[in-house]
Design a protein around this nucleic acid. Structure first.
Length: 830
RNA sequence: GCGAGGGUGGCGGAAUUGGUAGACGCACCAGACUUAGGAUCUGGCGCCUUACGGUGUGGGGGUUCGACUCCCCCCUCUCGCACCA
């Protein structure tokens, strides 16, 4: 082939990608076994919901993960890199209803299609470990774990208020309620009291919080979000006796130091003592109307709405246990029943909300903490003073500083028996009951005589019935399926009813990463030996939208699995990379915006390698990636340039050692090669900055391209060029695996490029022998000098001062000093 | 309001410990090869200026021989939480 024939030819990505994908499949290339001779490395990307076809977010996520997997393999690690399907969930039911098919059929056909799409991307998964969570072979083990958790008291039932969607006939998770509407049908969500199953994640609140400190490989942002979500507060819980009544109002405060400043009490409209407080009062009707009114307002208000503080006096008083003062009890709209005790001691001088309320209802304001010795005047204060300071008007605690005062005041309550130090969390128990069909059945039985009974292990799994009912409907919820419900009590053998709730799909995704270590194990949910070999996951990669829910649940499950004896780790994911979104025209890709780019079309048009390359090149992984069709074009051009370079230089097949006699330009390329190896590797090691690694590779290619264009007649340079191109191919192979594998064989190599060791950086070769030194005059660049790398400072200084471009600016001026920065610059100050 | 992270050419993005701002890519401009080019190759490309030079990393101030980088104030964008007592 002559150069003219190849001057604008392109590589046949379709043939090459198919060839190598077949090769990898036929040789079972990425099958992974435990290997004690190699260090293990477990890299995992968040598994997808099989919605139908992959989107650009998947492409990005899995390209990043695949580079990590391939890179670590080449660095000598034994890499576990599995893939599976988060296969239960509501969309399958919707689709089944729409198409009059079955959720299982829809799901499995999507899985087949998407698996094929992932394979077309050339992702190096061990497909032998594939998991689909809707498969009874997976959820059986989940049911067993559920029962073990039940036995341990981590699972319980309670009746509480949930989000109910009337049109979907199901409870929704909080995150599925968008501005008060159902995410699916846009109908209003109503609170509804229902019985359901819960995981006692609050038992682990403290550990989930404190172990965040161990997660040094996680982004600070995610750690902060989890800390806020858990929401730990320390303070005092104590009782205020109701004046002239038997009952007490329990409160919780994080500011016990301000307790002498209490001037009223606020309780939530739903507070259990409300009835006791107001019944028989002459204002009872007014108060009840007021409560109805504010509860209705609460329901209607959107999340953006500013709420004006409102309240009503109950007519009753309670007594501050510290100073015996009688303070009025109000019902107030801003007090949350869900948090703390549903009652708040009000200190308007030192709390913004109490201050606003006090000003509205003209209640007294009593400062008890003075910051920086400045007196606060209740008449003229415009804001509450929330900063620490010294106590006044606080009896025996006067003069104490806020932090000491808190301790002393708590201690006082404890010794007098009306309160104690207390910690509260915002974290709530995890409600896992769903009234939907397409989920893992909760393995419990309700018996009229024996109550709730767990299904015996030997009767598991409780299989999701897959038969259609008489109407042909295939996914009506379990509570409508009489044949499923009817069973016998495991305890007494009498007729009983099965639990009809299914589990939240987040349960499946909370432990799948552990099951990958032993996906076909048939004795227990986990093979302890395998799990302890592979876990924790060394590198987890996924979207930041899971920062709280999935990642918190998985951390919780890991601790539960540890306590059940299956795992010996505390945390599941050592390092976490949260990749940014793929956006187009400044917005997240979505059907409604019409800015969706289908990976399938791109792969058809450019090939998987180009699509992978662009998604890695356009932005560092943690940032959002703006999709740009012309940028994809650029990546395709780059690969084709490399291709043409290789096919037009058949002499590159001769693998000669690099001699010591190199031309100037030969030495330069040799140097550039080793500088590139260094930069490339460092950029990957440093937070997986593939974008800068790739640009380093492009630079290397540009310099070998320009070198050989002018000097390709000189055969002596071939070994240097060969070294450069081989290094480039190996470096790029984790990113564009098919292309590099094919080009590698083009160079006459029989061994697979993947078994090549990662290129070694030769510091000697990378060393510059000439340096460009910048010469500044008073900080402005005036000249540049080419000097030997080992030049002495004095000599360099003399050269700089003699430089004509410098002289122009220093002539006739007094020389103050000269700064020489090794290998960088000279700055002359005049 | 609170918390976190950003603001660098027309665009995506680079810049060890303060030391050549704009690597790499896209777009654009000019040229080459062509019947043609939306292929390919070569060169140019922050802004102002014919040039010399000046100026420039959201704005203002400071430290320094030297600041995208450090300090203070302000503006702005994105994300998260949002009456949590």
């Amino acid at each position: 082939m002559t150069t003219s024939q190849t001057s604008n030819s392109k590589y046949d990505y379709k043939a090459i990608e198919e060839k190598w994908q077949k090769n990898w499949k036929d040789t079972d290339k990425y099958k992974t076994r435990e290997d004690e001779n190699k260090e293990k490395y477990y890299v995992l990307e968040m598994f997808p919901y099989p919605s139908g076809r992959i989107h650009m977010g998947h492409v990005r996520n899995y390209s990043i993960g695949d580079v990590v997997a391939r890179y670590k393999r080449m660095r000598g690690f034994n890499v576990l890199h599995p893939m599976g399907w988060d296969a239960f969930g509501l969309p399958a039911e919707n689709a089944a209803q729409k198409n009059n098919s079955h959720p299982a059929a829809w799901t499995y056909s999507n899985i087949d299609y998407m698996r094929n799409q992932l394979q077309q991307l050339g992702l190096s998964y061990d497909w032998g470990r594939e998991i689909a969570t809707c498969n009874p072979k997976y959820y059986t083990w989940e049911q067993i774990l559920f029962l073990e958790m039940y036995k341990k008291g981590i699972v319980y039932q309670k009746t509480t208020t949930v989000n109910w969607c009337e049109s979907c006939q199901t409870v929704l998770a909080n995150e599925q309620v968008i501005e008060g509407l159902c995410w699916r049908c846009d109908q209003a969500i109503h609170p509804r009291k229902m019985n359901g199953w819960f995981f006692k994640i609050t038992d682990y609140a403290e550990e989930l919080l404190s172990d965040l400190d161990k997660l040094t490989g996680w982004p600070e942002k995610v750690l902060t979000m989890q800390r806020n979500w858990i929401g730990k507060s320390t303070g005092l819980s104590c009782d205020f006796q109701l004046d002239g009544m038997d009952e007490k109002i329990a409160i919780f405060t994080t500011r016990p130091d301000t307790i002498f400043g209490v001037t009223f009490m606020s309780i939530a409209p739903e507070h259990p003592l409300v009835d006791t407080l107001i019944s028989g009062s002459d204002k009872e009707n007014d108060i009840r109307n007021f409560i109805t009114e504010i509860l209705a307002e609460k329901q209607q208000q959107g999340p953006e709405d500013e709420q004006i503080k409102k309240g009503i006096f109950t007519g009753k008083y309670c007594i501050n246990p510290y100073n015996g003062e009688k303070v009025p009890v109000y019902i107030a709209n801003f007090v949350l029943i869900e948090y703390g005790t549903g009652a708040v001691m009000a200190v308007p001088a030192h709390d913004e909300r109490d201050f606003e309320f006090a000003r509205t209802y003209d209640l007294p304001i009593k400062p008890v903490v003075i910051p920086d010795g400045i007196q606060l005047d209740p008449q003229t204060m415009e804001n509450a003073s929330t900063v620490p300071g010294l106590l006044i008007n606080s009896g025996e605690f006067n003069g104490l500083e806020t932090e000491e005062a808190k301790k002393a005041i708590i201690h006082h309550a404890e010794t007098h028996g009306f309160g104690k130090a207390h910690i509260t969390y915002r974290l709530r128990d995890w409600g896992i009951s769903r009234q939907r069909y397409w989920g893992a059945p909760i393995p419990m039985v309700h018996c009229d005589s024996c109550g709730v009974q767990p299904v015996p292990v030997e009767q598991l799994p409780v299989v999701l019935p897959d038969d259609a009912d008489a109407s042909g409907a295939t996914c009506q919820p379990l509570h409508q399926r009489e044949s499923f419900i009817a069973t016998t009590c495991p305890a007494c053998g009498k007729a009983a009813r099965r639990e009809t709730d299914t589990m939240d799909t987040f349960v499946e995704s909370s432990w799948y990463f552990a099951r990958y270590t032993c996906p076909r194990f048939t004795d227990a949910p986990l093979d302890k030996e395998k799990a302890s070999h592979w876990l924790p996951v060394d590198q987890y990669i996924g979207g930041v939208e899971h920062a709280i829910l999935h990642l918190l649940y998985s951390r919780f499950f890991t601790k539960v699995l540890r306590d059940l004896g299956y795992l010996d780790i505390d945390e599941p994911f050592t390092n976490l990379l949260t990749q940014g979104m793929v956006i187009k025209d400044g917005a997240k890709m979505s059907k409604s915006k019409g800015n969706v780019v289908d990976p399938h079309d791109l792969i058809t048009e450019y090939g998987a390698d180009t699509v992978r390359l662009f998604s890695l090149f356009a932005a560092p992984p943690e940032k959002d990636l703006e999709w740009n069709a012309q940028g994809v074009e650029g990546c395709s051009r780059f690969l084709n340039r490399v291709y043409r370079f290789i096919i037009s230089r058949p002499e590159l097949k001769e693998d000669n050692a690099i001699g010591s006699e190199l031309s100037e330009s030969g030495r330069a390329l040799h140097r550039k090669t080793h500088q590139t190896i260094k930069r490339f590797t460092e950029n990957i090691e440093n937070n997986f900055h593939f974008n800068t690694a790739i640009s380093a590779g492009m630079e290397l290619f540009n310099s070998m391209n320009s070198l050989t264009d002018s000097e390709k007649q000189e055969p002596a340079e071939t070994p240097v060029v060969l070294e450069a191109i081989k290094s480039l191919l190996i470096l790029l192979s984790p990113m564009v695996p098919h292309f590099c594998a094919e080009m590698w064989t083009q160079l006459g190599n029989n061994e697979s490029i993947e078994s090549e060791p990662w290129p070694q950086y030769d510091a000697e070769a990378a060393k510059e022998d000439l340096l460009t030194i910048v010469v500044q005059v008073v900080g402005k660049v005036r000249s540049r000098l080419q000097v030997p790398a080992d030049i002495e400072d004095e000599e360099l200084k003399a050269m700089a001062l003699a430089d004509p471009n410098v002289l122009r600016f220093i002539e006739g001026k007094e020389l103050k000093k000269t700064i020489v920065v090794k290998k960088k610059l000279v700055n002359i100050v005049v």
